[in-house]
Amino acid sequence: MKDTLRKLCEAYGPSGNEGQVRDLIRSEIEGLADSVRVDALGNLIAVKGSGGHRVMLAAHMDEIGVIITHIDENGFLRFAPVGGVWTLGLSGRRVAFADGTIGAIGLEKLDDRDRVPAMAKFYIDIGASKKDEVHLKVGDMAVMTRPFVTNGGRWIGKAMDNRAGCAVLIETMRRLKAPKHEVAFVFTTQEEVGLRGATTSAFGLDPEIAVAVDVTGTGDTPKAAPMAVSLGEGAAIKVRDGGMLAHLGVKDLLVQRAEENGIAYQLEVLEGGTTDGRAIQTSRAGVPTGVVSVPTRYIHSPSEMIDERDAEACASLLVVLLENDITL
């Protein structure tokens, strides 16, 4: 899983521009699915197995980024966030555009150094000295750039949210020998700007049960907000987050499968944030939906950290879910 995740994390894919990630996943899952297609909003849908229930698994391909909103006379680029970008720590970060152009994020002189400055105070400097030298255009998007590194079993990279989820889905496909169900592995688009790809792909697939795979926060860092999820303690099975309450039946089934198979898990109550699960759950007349989360520190920073064992546990849990009967 590590090599796959390294490639995924280092790929470029802000919301609405997931093409490079999609191509990469397509090649990684070559031969693993019965059919593969791309829908109108760019979701990659790989179907494997037949019979049983129609199950949808979803992990989003997109990552947060920035979009150029203005190019000034001196060649500096002003930008808006794409998804939940925090201003804290933006100064000095590097960003990469689709064509590989690297920019440094600068910050205007501050009147008050103790207050977090507004997004409008930051700009991207690509080294141009005037507007004419800028080959980029208003509307072009960039992502944070940082190599994937490992410290033993702790993996650090940008875009763990949610390439970790994508890697878990790919790993599940690799390990899944005999699914008892018709499983649609959906690599969704535009989650970070409002769960948009999941909304339309769920409608199209009309699943009977769904599980979203995404990252979640932890409460195991100094003075963290109280939360009973820790890195390395296993797959997190979601109870609720800021946008949804997991279907009780699906949640309980995931817990049951984890316990039966000795897979490490922890129950997750997340205060803010949500996942594709929220959108899938209310598709059409409603879809029983759960979420399996990879515990992740420093979410939406360029140094998101996960534990290898947690990601492995997530994949193991999905495999046993799909290789057994599902009754809710």
Binding site: G219, P226, M227, A228, R240, L245, V269, E271
Partner: peptide, 16 residues
């Protein structure tokens, strides 16, 4: 309300 964390002999919670 919903249980967020067990903290020794008390329950920390958040709301639904």
């Amino acid at each position: 309300l919903i249980v967020k964390k067990l903290d020794k002999h008390v329950i920390r919670f958040t709301q639904v």
